[in-house]
Simulated scan of single mutants.
Amino acid sequence: MTLITETSKLVTVFGGSGFIGRHTVRALARRGYRVRVAVRRPDLAGHLQPLGNVGQIQAVQANLRVRWSVDRAVEGADHVINLVGILHESGRQSFNAVQAFGARAVAEAARSVGAKMTQMSAIGADSASESDYARTKALGEEAVLSTLPDANVIRSSIVFGPEDAFFNRFAAMARFSPVLPLIGGGTTRYQPVYVVDVAEALTLTVDGKASPGTTYELGGPEVLTFRECMEHMLKVIDRRRMLVSVPWPVARLQGAILGMLPNPLLTSDQVRLLRNDNVVSDAANAEGRTLSGLGVAPESVDAILSSYLWRYRVAGQYTKTNLA
């Protein structure tokens, strides 16, 4: 058991109660860091407490749209990690407010206390993108690096793991629907990366193992089309479903309609995002700005999916499969 003292390095993690956040908090706690988790609803972050020793993990209230709460959350911190991001806008939680303005607020607060910083972004971030998600992710990167030039930016492809919103969502859909949609024919390419590997990369930046001011791109060992992702998922849950191509014009219409729901399955912005491949760039591979460059051997989709998608099989964990 790692001894935690008042002199142990303090890391503030914005968005630490989310999918990537909980795995990052666990990885930090195992390294012996004190972890301050900055979230909008600390009362809903109790699931993080068992991830560390008594008193090692503390949840505090903070909202990226409220600057004084951000300043308070980073007081005394040695390193700050910003994981906050949204997939669709809701009320005052707009892409600009959360992913652009919010990232700048965190960077300025970290600079004011002399803390180092790691910004979580996404492969495909581009200030000229038609997608508001990708555009504001890029603006957030620019805001962080202009404020703290030695900060690290971590871009990832689709992140998968026990609580993911990708494979879980389509596996749940496959339980009831005889068909699964393939937006644009399902030819868009992805490089799914395991959440534990992403958490390890984030923690390595805190350890000082990453090159300062460098942007890393994280992807798994395989490049898969959307169709291939669905085929892998269906094989794991042992279900046969028809994969139906949805033309881009139809997908845009569906996104416009579904985007009006409180928790939409698809939005117009996501359709624009889906038109572009989401894989590690050739430049990042050549320069070692990848998981391998950080010394992390990425896990494959096939090695992990069955460990959590088994619950979508007809008889759950007792279903006989031919995965071997």
Rank of each mutant, 00 (worst) to 15 (best):
Q58T: 11
G46V: 12
V39D: 02
P50G: 12
L28G: 13
L48T: 12
R34Q: 13
V39N: 00
A29G: 14
Q49R: 13
Q58E: 14
G55I: 01
D43T: 11
A38D: 03
H47S: 14
R41Y: 06
A59N: 06
R31H: 10
L51F: 07
P42H: 06
Q58W: 00
A38K: 09
D43L: 04
A38W: 01
G32W: 07
P50D: 09
V37F: 03
Y33I: 05
G52W: 09
V37T: 09
G32F: 11
V37C: 06
L44M: 12
A29Y: 01
V39K: 02
P50R: 11
R30Y: 02
A45K: 10
P50T: 06
V35F: 01
V39P: 00
G52D: 09
G32M: 11
R34K: 15
V37L: 03
V35A: 03
Y33M: 06
R41L: 04
A38M: 11
R34M: 03
R41T: 15
R41D: 15
V54P: 00
R41V: 09
L28N: 03
P42M: 07
A45W: 12
G52A: 11
A45E: 14
R36M: 14
Y33G: 03
P50N: 09
A45P: 15
Q58F: 01
R41G: 01
V39G: 00
H47D: 14
N53A: 08
G46L: 07
G55M: 09
G52V: 08
G46C: 08
I57P: 13
V37Q: 05
A29N: 06
A29W: 05
L48Q: 06
L44Q: 15
L28I: 01
V54Q: 15
V39I: 08
V39R: 01
R36Q: 04
R31P: 00
